[in-house]
């Protein structure tokens, strides 16, 4: 499958003459040269792909370059070097007019602090992207009302942003970004400014929308719990570099380095790991329990069964064929291995 949006070797340096500096070092300057010459490396050497219908979550500590990278993908920021492909076309070579067209029809973005226009009502805010396209008022307001209903704000269309709670404001932000029915959806820490309870609710809302709409998504967060709830794959960034890309399970079970391991340490692994990733090959002589579990089950969901059973459980695929076994001891081993590592 072709990537919907991808970037290759993207660099973003801040400083006096970033292009010249990169060129002088053949496009790959060593770290000490960057620091020595007073450049700030917001993004370095970043490559990633997002496939149609996929949620790619970009994670990292504050200042690790997440926002910069995503803004390079939408060309809100001009990368210093590298290429960005949107549907296979190079976004960076695209003339301004075409770029505006792409933004008008194929991209949507949600911002951390909502970025609503304070002088416009909910309806006018949501209809704004349609308005700048020159769509007539009747059509755009009808469409906007549909989206407003979709995000659960029906009846609030005449309100001003100031009259809404944070969660509601972000719903407006989401509705606005969806009004043009974009293919690609960028979300920069959309829920970070919200209370934990509302955040949870908004995540559910987001998942509900995504099952309906199947957008291609780049989603930034610095909250790993949020990442594993939402992500198909997670890209972890550190000091401008992408240090690892993989499924949540991969990151937890095979972290590329200590930085990634640090992120994943406090994760409730049983909720994340599937039976498949903790099972062992069943040895023939072993007597398995009669109870079977499926490889795709989350460990947390079948924990009770595993703990209650004296013997290992049988893992069977859809056809009923035995493909492995999970034992109490082994599950405990896997779940608590990180602590063990940390202490040992």
């Amino acid at each position: 499958m072709d990537a919907k949006i991808a970037c290759r070797d993207v660099w973003k340096l801040y400083g006096k003459d970033p292009e010249g500096f990169l060129a002088a070092h053949n496009g790959d300057p060593p770290d000490d040269a960057i620091a020595g010459d007073g450049y700030i490396p917001a993004v370095r050497h970043a490559s990633l792909e997002v496939f149609p219908g996929e949620i790619l979550v970009i994670m990292g500590l504050s200042g690790s370059g997440k926002s910069t990278l995503v803004r390079c993908l939408s060309r809100l920021i001009e990368p210093t070097a590298g290429e960005v492909l949107f549907d296979g076309q190079d976004l960076l070579k695209m003339p301004a007019k075409e770029l505006i067209e792409i933004r008008r029809h194929k991209m949507g973005m949600v911002f951390q602090h909502f970025a609503l226009l304070p002088h416009r009502t909910v309806l006018q805010n949501v209809a704004f992207p349609l308005e700048v396209q020159g769509i007539d008022r009747g059509t755009r307001e009808k469409r906007a009302l549909d989206v407003i209903e979709l995000v659960g704000l029906k009846g609030r269309d005449g309100y001003y942003p100031r009259e809404l709670s944070g969660g509601q404001q972000q719903r407006v932000g989401i509705a606005r970004s969806l009004a043009v029915e974009p293919d690609v959806w960028f979300l920069d820490e959309p829920f970070s400014a919200l209370d934990p309870l509302i955040r949870r609710e908004m995540q559910d809302e987001f998942l509900r929308l995504q099952t309906m709409l199947q957008k291609t998504i780049a989603f930034i967060t610095h909250d790993f719990d949020e990442a594993i709830r939402l992500a198909d794959r997670i890209a972890i960034m550190n000091e401008g570099r992408i240090v690892q890309i993989g499924s949540p399970e991969e990151l937890v079970t095979r972290p590329a380095n200590d930085y990634v391991a640090n992120f994943t340490r406090d994760v409730a692994r049983e909720k994340l790991l599937t039976v498949a990733s903790v099972m062992e090959a069943s040895t023939d002589g072993e007597t398995l329990s009669d109870t079977t579990v499926r490889p795709t089950d989350k460990v947390a969901d079948v924990a009770r069964l595993i703990i209650d059973s004296e013997r290992p459980l049988r893992v069977a695929d859809d056809t009923g064929r035995t493909i492995g076994a999970v034992s109490r001891a082994h599950v405990l081993d896997v779940l608590f291995s990180v602590e063990a590592d940390a202490h040992g």
Binding site: R71, I100, R103, R104, M109, F111, H113, A115, P129, V132
Partner: peptide, 13 residues
């Protein structure tokens, strides 16, 4: 705020 400006650009202004 830069975000508001970005929202404008992303809307295709």
């Amino acid at each position: 705020s830069p975000e508001v400006r970005e929202a404008g650009i992303m809307a295709g202004c």
